[in-house]
Design a protein around this nucleic acid. Sequence first.
DNA 1: AGAAATTTGTCCGTATGTATC
DNA 2: AGATACATACGGACAAATTTC
Lengths: 140, 140
Amino acid sequence: MPTPHYGQPRYRAIADELRERIKSGAIPPGAFLPAESVLTAEFKVSRGTIRQAISALRKDGLVATEHGRGTYANAQFHAQSSHHRANPRTRQREVSADEGLAELFDVEVGAPLIEQESVVRIGKRVATVTREYRLGPASS
Amino acid sequence: MPTPHYGQPRYRAIADELRERIKSGAIPPGAFLPAESVLTAEFKVSRGTIRQAISALRKDGLVATEHGRGTYANAQFHAQSSHHRANPRTRQREVSADEGLAELFDVEVGAPLIEQESVVRIGKRVATVTREYRLGPASS
DNA sequence: AGAAATTTGTCCGTATGTATC
DNA sequence: AGATACATACGGACAAATTTC
């Protein structure tokens, strides 16, 4: 009998649980989370649900995932003013609309937008950088 | 708010948008479309709707899907190779690297980069603007 | 060097329940 | 009632990157 989702969806509950483990230090920065297969066993949900939960954490910048390797907790505090590059392959932040974006979105210059930046590396070299813009939350 | 489908259903609007991206070259022949999960995020619709849209493109022969790999644009001998540059949703230009880009690409601030901008409209509204950066020609 | 195992990425099909036009 | 669409969830299969043997 699949899928009653009264109240809170399971993927969100799982995301909360994992977030807690990271913030509490049970999963220290840099350490890998259990594999998806392990998490499905632990929480007794399907893999898709686990992936949904992890996806939420990734969007929050809490974790990063690498194909064939795993998902690990990010060191997210003390982010800037350091001399060496961590590896944020994707990053979300709020920016002000430049002239071009303002015109496209039909907002004023300087209006808040959400920028999602992702970096594609080939080997160590950066191949492409993609910045995707959406309207900020303060818009209907 | 779920489901106002005045006039055109959303899956058809999304199919049109994707078709446009392919024909405009934003998704060149052979290139993969974003994954279903990415498209759900981009268009803010459910997976079922995305699958409906892609299914339409597949029926038109515009794209092909391979299990476990993804969906890619077909090498579509564009019929008569005519001149349809009416509504360029995508645009390419040369820009100067800002601080963030310069660091990622490991070039100086102000170095020339190629920016490819594409605009996704849902109905008349601009949903997302994507700017993709690559190194300019002046780099080997 | 090569094969196997592990792990994530992606798609397939299906299902339940809700809501709106 | 029917079509459209949402969010959630299942289980399966194949693909691809990485690690281990």
